[in-house]
Amino acid sequence: MNRSGRGLQAYAVIYLLFLYAPIILLPIFAFNSGTIIAFPLQGFSTEWFEQMWSNTTLRRALANSLTIAVSASVLATCLGIFAARASTRFAFPGKGGIMGFIMLPMVLPEIIVAMSLLVVLLGVGVQLSLLTVIAGHTLICMPYAIAVLSTAFSSLDRSLEEAAYDLGESRWGAFRLVTLPLVMPGIISALLISFTISLDEFIIAFFLAGNEPTLPTYIFSQLRFPRAIPVIMALGTVLVLISIVLLAIGEYFRRRGNARIGGSPTGGLL
């Protein structure tokens, strides 16, 4: 590698450090026995993890977040399958506009989605609950699910399904026996990504959950209290670990899916 290459490499390493700075600090403070989040460190302690485990509000928030994330990811992925198949397999009038509109929540500020939905729900008189959060999360997870699923569907040779049909299967049989198994890795990774997004989503949960806490809204409420911060650090550490594991699994399935249908290992989400 030449000189400019080495310069770029050094820059890339520094940039990664910048990207990872908060994540590296997280476990450091989570295991620090001091109550103030600052250097120098006081000593090693697992106290914050124990406190976290025994916190009932936190458990409730966790249960709520899991309920929301599972529901929203399943719904978003199911809707995403329809959209991804429609966009990769069929030409229909208004396709660009419709797809653009469905993908819009990817760039639209969440505050707009949350506020407008809130205004309508209050106007119609719907009680805020986990259901309203699920509705909002499904909307914002859907574009990500579609992005992942579209790569899975579009890398699929169209004649595979025709071949199954030609060999005597029904349309549904061809889809179930050929298309579905081949896009299954994409479906799993869409589920995981939607799950991760929903689990971490704050604004919609904050405005649409009523009195029910979720993990992010719980964290937000605790950030004001310096005493509560070490527990939040512990919680953050656990969440980061979970996210990394889920993403690694998602990535594994995506690549395995690609390898199976002979695609390239790069590409993927976004």
């Binding site: 990207l19 953050g236 980061v240 996210s243 990394i244």
Partner: peptide, 10 residues
């Protein structure tokens, strides 16, 4: 992309 997927608030 990993950092992007960890809790935004934190």
């Amino acid at each position: 992309t990993i950092p992007f997927w960890t809790s935004y608030l934190i």
